[in-house]
Amino acid sequence: MRQWLRYKSAWLLGVSLLLALVLSSCAFPGLTTTSATLPQVSQQPTKTELPPIRFPRDEGAHNDLTEWWYYTGHMQATDVAGKQHTYGFELVFFQALRSNLPAVYPAHFAISDITRREFHYDQQRITQFAASPSDGLSTQGINTHVGDWSVQGLNGKDHLVASMQNYAIDLNLTGLKAPTLHNGNGLITYGLGGFSYYYSRTRMQVAGTLLDHNQSLKVTGTAWMDHQWGNFLTLGGGGWDWYSIQLNNKTEIMLYFIRDASGKTISTYIGYTDTDGKAYMLPEQSLKSTVLAKWTSPTTGITYPSGWRIDVQDPRLQTTLTIKPLLKNQELVVKNSTGNTYWEGAVSIDGQHKGQPVAGEGYVELTGYTK
C-alpha cells in the first residue's frame, strides 16, 4: 500500500508539473496552434536521414513529443425558410507526450457565425496515458477523441464531430488534392530544437450537418487541414502570422511570418499549390505584406492587425490579394487548455492572379500579440 501511495504521489506530482508546463504559453507554444512551430526554413528541401512521410501510415498518431491535427473551413447552408447561412469553423486536437508521464490532449472548437455576426468557441483538455500511438506503423489513419469531440479519417476522408452551446458539427471532409508536403519533403528541422513533419490538405470538400440553435442544417463548403508532429519543443518569445488562402481558380497559398521577441520578422514562408496539386516553395523576397487596419479586443485589450494586402511576384505565382476578416472579433482566450490567447478567424479574399480577377476565402492566425 505504501509503495502504491508513493507511486501515486509521484504520478500526481508529474501530472501537475506537466500541466503547469502545458498551461504556460511561453513553455510550450508548440501546443498553441499548428503554425506554432513555424520554424525558419531554407529555400531548399531539408536533407535528412529521417524517414520520409508515407500515406496513409502517417495520418495517425505518433510517439513523438508534440503533434496536432488542425482543421479550418467555410460552410454554407439554407434553412427551411429559405434563408442563407454562412459559417467559418476551427477544430484542432493536440497531443503532447513527455517521458513516461500521462499524455495531454487539449482541443479547441470555434464557430464564426457570419450570418449572426457572432463568434463562439469552446475548449477541452484531457490527461491520460497515451493509447498506443502508431509511430507511423499503422494504416488505420486518424482516430483522436477529446471528450465528446473527435476526428477519424483515412486517405483524406475525415469525419469531424464537436459540440458546444448552441452549435454542433458532424462533418465529412474529402481531400480534393494530394497532400502538400511543406519545405519540399514535409520535414522541417531547426537544430537543437528538434524536427517537425508538416503537411497540409489544402482543399477538402465539406458536407454534413450543423446544429445551429437547435436547427439542423445541411452544410457544404471547403476546408483546410494541417497535420504536424515531431520531437520538437519551441520556447517562448515572439509570435507569428499564418494565412491559409483558397482561391476560386482552384489554387492555394500558405504564408507565415515569424517575429522575435522585439517584433522583428525573422522568417517568412510562402507555399503555393497549383490547380494540379503540385506544390512550390517560393523565395521570401517575392512577398510583400501590408497591414491595412487594426482591431483591439474588448476582452483582453490586445490589438491585432485586421486586414492585409498581400503581393507575391514570382514566375510561378503573380498575385495581389486583399484579405479582410469576416468578423473583427475572432479571438480565443484558452487559458484552461493551452494556456494562451490568440486570434484565428475566417477571412474573405479578392484581388488579381496573373492579371485576372480572383476571389477566395481562408483563415488567418495571429499569435504573440500582447497588450
Rank of each mutant, 00 (worst) to 15 (best):
M1H: 05
W4G: 04
Y7W: 07
K8R: 13
A10T: 15
L13D: 09
L13H: 13
G14F: 04
S16H: 15
L18D: 08
L19V: 06
V22H: 03
L23V: 05
S24A: 00
S24N: 06
S25L: 05
S25M: 00
F28W: 13
T48C: 00
M75W: 09
K83A: 14
Q84M: 01
Q84N: 11
H85W: 00
H85I: 05
H85R: 00
S99E: 00
V104M: 07
P106V: 08
H108S: 12
F109N: 11
T115H: 07
F129Q: 05
A131D: 14
S134Y: 10
L137V: 08
L137G: 02
T139P: 08
Q140V: 03
G147D: 05
G147V: 00
G153C: 03
N155H: 11
K157P: 04
H159I: 10
V161Q: 15
Q165K: 11
L171V: 02
L181W: 07
G184A: 13
L187G: 03
I188K: 09
T189V: 13
G191T: 05
G193M: 08
F195W: 12
S196H: 05
S196M: 11
Y197P: 05
S200D: 15
S200W: 05
M204Y: 06
V206L: 07
L210Y: 07
L211I: 09
D212L: 04
D212C: 02
L217P: 10
W224S: 05
W229E: 02
F232M: 14
L233T: 14
T234R: 15
L235G: 09
G239T: 13
I245N: 04
Q246Y: 05
N248L: 01
I253K: 12
M254C: 07
F257I: 06
I258W: 10
S262C: 11
I270F: 15
I270C: 15
I270V: 15
Y272I: 12
D274E: 12
T275D: 13
E284C: 09
Q285Y: 10
S286W: 02
T296W: 01
T296H: 03
T299K: 14
T300M: 03
T303G: 03
Y304V: 00
P305A: 14
S306E: 01
W308G: 11
R309N: 15
T320N: 11
K324D: 06
P325S: 09
K328N: 13
Q330A: 12
V334F: 02
T338D: 13
G339I: 05
Y342K: 05
A346N: 12
D350K: 01
G351N: 11
Q352M: 14
Q356Y: 01
E361P: 01
E365S: 01
T367E: 01
T370Q: 07
K371G: 12
